[in-house]
Design a protein around this nucleic acid. Sequence first.
DNA 1: TTGGTTAGTTCAATTAATTTACTAATTCAG
DNA 2: CTGAATTAGTAAATTAATTGAACTAACCAA
Lengths: 396, 396
Amino acid sequence: MVSAFSPQSAGDLNFLKTLNRSAVISHVRRYPGATRADIASRTQLTKATVGSVVQGLLDQGWLCEGELQPRGEGRPGRALYLDDTHHVLWGADIGVKSLRLVACSLTGQHLIEHHDAEAPTTPEATMKRLAELLNQLQQRPEVAGREILGLGVTAPGPVSPLIPVLRLAPNIRWSDVALLDVLDEAGLTMPGVRLLDNEANAAAFGEFYFHAGTPPESLVYISAGTGIGSGLVTGDEYPLVPRGVQGLLGEIGHTVLQPGGLYCHCGNRGCAETLVSGWAIRAALGLDENADLEKEVGLKSHEPGVQHVLARAGEALGVLMLNLHHTLNPATMVLGGSLLRLGEALTQPALAYFEAHQNDLLRESQHIPIKLIEDSTYTAARGAAAQVMAKAVLDV
Amino acid sequence: MVSAFSPQSAGDLNFLKTLNRSAVISHVRRYPGATRADIASRTQLTKATVGSVVQGLLDQGWLCEGELQPRGEGRPGRALYLDDTHHVLWGADIGVKSLRLVACSLTGQHLIEHHDAEAPTTPEATMKRLAELLNQLQQRPEVAGREILGLGVTAPGPVSPLIPVLRLAPNIRWSDVALLDVLDEAGLTMPGVRLLDNEANAAAFGEFYFHAGTPPESLVYISAGTGIGSGLVTGDEYPLVPRGVQGLLGEIGHTVLQPGGLYCHCGNRGCAETLVSGWAIRAALGLDENADLEKEVGLKSHEPGVQHVLARAGEALGVLMLNLHHTLNPATMVLGGSLLRLGEALTQPALAYFEAHQNDLLRESQHIPIKLIEDSTYTAARGAAAQVMAKAVLDV
DNA sequence: TTGGTTAGTTCAATTAATTTACTAATTCAG
DNA sequence: CTGAATTAGTAAATTAATTGAACTAACCAA
């Protein structure tokens, strides 16, 4: 997918070693049970190099050996796996209506899940709550004794690409908060790396990174909740999460789908969020801003008016997906967010529009798989944990 | 702009050397007249490494030394420049209505420009013509004796991201052509690398690569001509041209701006190209498909109907730019393509819409510069030449 | 002229990958 | 059961890149 790779930054021997260690870990992550010989042939490294890199990772508890892998003729190789027992990755997702925490092992297993139903208030109070929770959860037996690689935090809004500052989160009325600093000031005691990212970016990265089997060459995650956002992972050899110069990459909720349409809280008219989003659907159904959408829709699911509202919103989601596809042409799309809980009444029209309106070239090419995550409660937090791992690998 | 860099591919010592050589060249390209000491401090390489890399590049004719650069106190450093005299980069742009060729030096100076007004017919005939032209132009004194680094070819349609195949070019009715093979079979005698890319991708890369001064951190090029396409360059340390899994990244002409709108030749309704593109404007003005748009509009520029058509098309372009900005959030946008020749009657409404409809976050952040290229005749060909250089650097 | 400062080179030292030769474990044929 | 063939992995010497320290070079100012 990527071409014209023209490095502007230099590296030393240590960088090279880091690069190769990261490549070995990536390979084992993608192909659990791979042998040293498998890794050597796929990465183009020599047997000797792979041997020494693997030995280092075994010593540090990143990898562990498994059974012998018979390969027809010849000596069988020794299976290698990510060692699930020595480390822990923490991810925290500051949602519009709750705080969600996850502790993951290196393979992405959830060791602890925690859902805190209190909606965020001020940044200080919320970070205090988060610090307390994390300080407590660290003691739990599921993670006790593990080396903590770090904490990734996600927020429902764009994050500055250069410094860990949440620029704007309209749905919780925060702006320009250096969240990681606030968190440290709130008394968090946790070693390792600290990361802050947008919720959709983190979710996209997690879906890519912890993907079972060979991951897609690129991936877009669409987060459909109170607002609409998206995150992109692109690049085969060097997967990246581009964020845009202002951290706004993927803020598709404010692409214009209906010039001259309804007014949006962003000041424009006809934004996607005026057609499909938690607040647009609540408004269209005449519900209160804080109404439990899933419950209300569940109660009235038989009413044709409700069906019609969901179908229209779903169609708008389909247009959004199609436009995003024409713009980014990802290998996979993943749909998540709280709106997915409204079920097929919403998703079916979206998928139908997407399928029906592909142009000739898209239709002729291979089918683009679309994954629906009905329950994405921990998707973003898990993605933040994945980012911690990707970062920690470079620091080993 | 880019985070969560998690390399999946490995490297050897030679890769490291290539990386550093590329970084040195990039630095001199960005900052002509830089000294070895400048490069060392910016790249974090040691003086010794920079010294030896630079010596190698001097020997091979990639760099040359200039005057002494006094730096206040201390010994002045020796200015370094890309050597403009030893190499040549070839770029060819297969347009909808003509063939355009450029020979560039390493700094992007045009040594030869050639415009062939014949519209493409079959791939074979067109490549025959191109091969003949190139074989002739190679003899010209402007480039005689220079080492040829290679040829980049651009086409008006999506190119497969893995193999150099033009997948579909509706405006010249080609599909699934291995253009570089056809070109070689047509008798081209030219050494060096061969590249094929989409016209907008190449233009975007060229605008980035040959940018005077520090290039923007990311850049989108919008090509507004017979159809509408775009190309993206992203990434600060490792600039990339993402192409999408099917080579369709940036095919924004078929994003839906008006659900249920006019039928587009792609089979959908309400595509951007039904509102703003050479053929949409010709249709709206009641002109023939092959009419000279610039001339016709020039003749009737006083007619209010013409003004209105251009204003409406311009506004659609503005929506497209805004949506693209919300999706990709590039540091710079560049507008090119033959429609730009229609002048302010088209571009002014586009820019006005873009400015007026930025949402709060965009407005608050720094102004996004938009560059208009009124005459983009050689922009794509020049971009293809830039891609040749980026590739050749890795092969030195 | 001398001391201070920055630029650039030289060369031994370091470090990571490689090469070559080796050992190890398995299958298969006889 | 034995030995040849095959593949996996290790060990040690080698190669090739960056590095560090010591050096020379060029300039300024007092």
